[in-house]
Design a protein around this nucleic acid. Structure first.
Lengths: 140, 140
DNA sequence: TTAATAATAGGAATTATTATCGTTTTTATT
DNA sequence: AATAAAAACGATAATAATTCCTATTATTAA
């Protein structure tokens, strides 16, 4: 049985109030302003729980730590390899899922995530001829 | 300047010879049969290097460790939450990348990854009424 | 065939996240 | 309101995946 908690409410509210896509660490440092003794483990615990409940989305960007999104409506994301920011994109038109031979995929599809990678509009402007890969944010 | 190495060739050859999507650990244990004293760090180093060169693809599935794909032609992937296997899918029709307001996205898009999650055909057959989420493979 | 430098092996270190566990909160039940 | 059951918590240890470090070896250029 799910019980109420101030910490979880606070985390949920925080995420709903922004359009960027904070990491657990970012959520933690902000919530601490209101609940100074909250634990990082509690932040992770509740972010994962909220994601399992479908109230938020966990984004595995592959670039550093996971990010979290309070907007659960279907949309795609862009990850900037220079500044690391995660931007929302319109979801591209969804076609039926098909195996490599063209036949309909007959597993059970429960969710989908699409990430685009490159340079965000701000960073592309700052270095239009950028050729070098990965020099500002940690790659892994 | 890039120098030749037996280890890197062996890793590349291994990946090109299969259609599944091994993890670094899997690559490591197989290469060890030929080069017994190869280091896991060498495997990671070369997998990352080959991915940066565009010769292979690194897949951030978000479920456990990254996987690697010797097939660099555009296609999507399916990740089974029960058995963990990564399957190839036809890439869904690509439309121009657009921001949330519908305008063309004006960053520089360099790559894209789409993952579908759920139960693969084999696992869906074994438990057709599967309701429970994440009980066999480690979630993170 | 020697000098340079890239790449390696092996292990330590780091990063991100989850598990553990004793304590505190919340909620249902007297 | 008091009590009891069980969720949730905070603090920290543990784990998983990956990267870093350093002395040595292999490759290429001169």
């Amino acid at each position: 049985m799910l019980k109420h908690s101030r910490q979880r409410d606070s985390i949920k509210d925080f995420l709903m109030g922004r359009t960027d896509h904070p990491t657990a660490e970012t959520v933690y440092s902000h919530i601490r302003e209101t609940i100074p003794n909250i634990s990082l483990a509690t932040v992770y615990r509740n972010l994962t729980l909220l994601a399992d409940l479908g109230e938020i989305r966990k984004l595995h960007t592959g670039e550093g730590p996971d990010h979290f999104d309070g907007n659960v409506a279907p949309h795609d994301h862009f990850v900037c390899r220079s500044c690391g920011q995660v931007l929302d994109l319109l979801q591209e038109g969804s076609t039926p899922v098909r195996s490599m031979d063209g036949s309909p995929f007959d597993g059970k599809v429960e969710s989908k995530q699409t990430f685009f990678y490159g340079l965000c509009p701000d960073c592309v402007e700052q270095r239009p001829e950028a050729e070098d890969i990965g020099n500002s944010i940690s790659r892994r």
